[in-house]
Design a binder for these strands. Structure first.
Lengths: 232, 232
DNA sequence: AGGAAACACTCAGGCAACCTTAAGGTTTTC
DNA sequence: GAAAACCTTAAGGTTGCCTGAGTGTTTCCT
């Protein structure tokens, strides 16, 4: 199947829209509802491949939605969303098979990565491979490992997400605003300076092991992960 | 499809007219409205391929327009416009997915370049290629790179825009006023002298690597990017 | 042809924006 | 309670933008 179908269930419309825009662009077919009741209806009719489910819904808890679906023999993997500090919820949510769990606020690219990871695990879809390799760098997303010319380097979570984003958009300049929108959590309110800082951290770890300056600055424009400059 | 359709949404008529003229000339079919309500109507009926949307509209915010459209399952990429210094408006999610973001005042040719970049990325249209090659010079728009006979040169943003404009109109004289109108921001209030300065900067970087004088002066008329002079 | 006027080119300088790096404080994690 | 990760801030250097002045070049008029 070419376009995996995602059902988004969240009562905050802003969040739904954000997820919808990001997921559509990433190649998913998107259904989006605001209540648990609708979720059950759409899940039955549209037969999505995966569901993004807020655990705090106005009409019923997210878990009761999954129970209802299982009782109807509709079996689909779930990416749970919850507000931070719901530690209690986490345990319950994770008891079942291929599911995963994220806290709000999230970064949009992280959601996409998790969804692809779940689909990969449940093996029902053609999804992006777990391994991204661009030029001298190879990332294993499942293992969270990064290799520069075969040597592993340790990256902090933010560094990792930044690198993954730049590599996913290799050979294309990304503005600092774009980077903020994709890599940082959606409610992040800081300035672009933080992107500059993290690019600096990344370079410090990557450059000693690479032949070329892989992350290049385009002054006044943004940053670019650059390979294969001469011929294309 | 030959002529991509653009929907312009802005309450300032001046801006609408400016965009409309520029985009029509660039080969787009243009629809232009002044309110969010109209935008929704036209987007539904005319099915444009992309929308240019001011985030500050009189009747509703630009974001609510995109939300409404998404809830109606009308999915089109957006180039957001906003006034500079709208720190408050800087809501995350602006550039999520295939969308992009520009601040006013802009240069008209930069808008066209961004629109083509978005359409290229969303792959729904036959648009100009990312690479412009005229004579001895090759520009990679995605990477913001410029090569003269295979050697890369570094250009500042303004130099880059000026060169792109001259190359897009190769073998045709462009007056200094035309250049100001297309390359500089629409509210730029300076003199033509600045064009002379920037042509000078460009030549200093280009000429050492080129066999011919690529940017030529037409006294009393303007400048021309000249190739294939012998036969025509 | 001579000279004035218009046009064009280059350069230096002031200011603003941008980039990098480092240091320190806060939050999170174990 | 210590370590790691994260964010902010600021200093300092660099680059980019624009202006204005000085010089060079062409055109045009007498």
């Amino acid at each position: 199947m070419k376009n995996p179908k995602v059902l988004i269930v969240d009562d905050e419309k802003n969040i739904r829209d954000l997820l919808e825009a990001g997921l559509k662009f990433a190649g998913f077919s998107v259904y989006s509802v605001g209540t648990g009741t609708e979720a059950v209806t759409v899940a039955e009719k549209a037969k999505p491949d995966i569901m993004i489910l807020d655990v705090m819904l106005p009409d019923q808890s997210g878990f009761s939605v999954t129970k209802k679906l299982r009782s109807m023999n509709i079996d689909l993997p779930v990416l749970f969303l919850s507000a931070r500090d719901d530690r209690g919820d986490k345990v319950t949510g994770l008891t079942v098979g291929g599911d995963d769990y994220m806290t709000k606020p999230f970064s949009i690219d992280e959601v996409i990565a998790r969804i692809q990871a779940i689909l990969r695990r449940t093996k029902k879809q053609d999804v992006e491979d777990s391994i991204i390799e661009v030029g001298e760098i190879k990332i294993n997303q499942d293992a969270h490992e990064v290799f520069v010319n075969g040597t592993e380097i340790e990256l902090s979570p933010t560094e990792y997400k930044l690198l993954r984003f730049l590599m996913a958009n290799a050979n294309r300049v990304m503005s600092k605003d774009q980077i903020l929108d994709h890599v940082w959590e959606y409610d992040f309110n800081g300035e672009q300076g933080i992107v500059e800082s993290y690019v600096s951290y990344l370079r410090k770890k990557i450059d000693p092991l690479s032949k070329n300056q892989l992350i290049q600055t385009k002054r006044g424009v943004g940053y670019i992960f650059r390979v294969a400059k001469s011929e294309e």
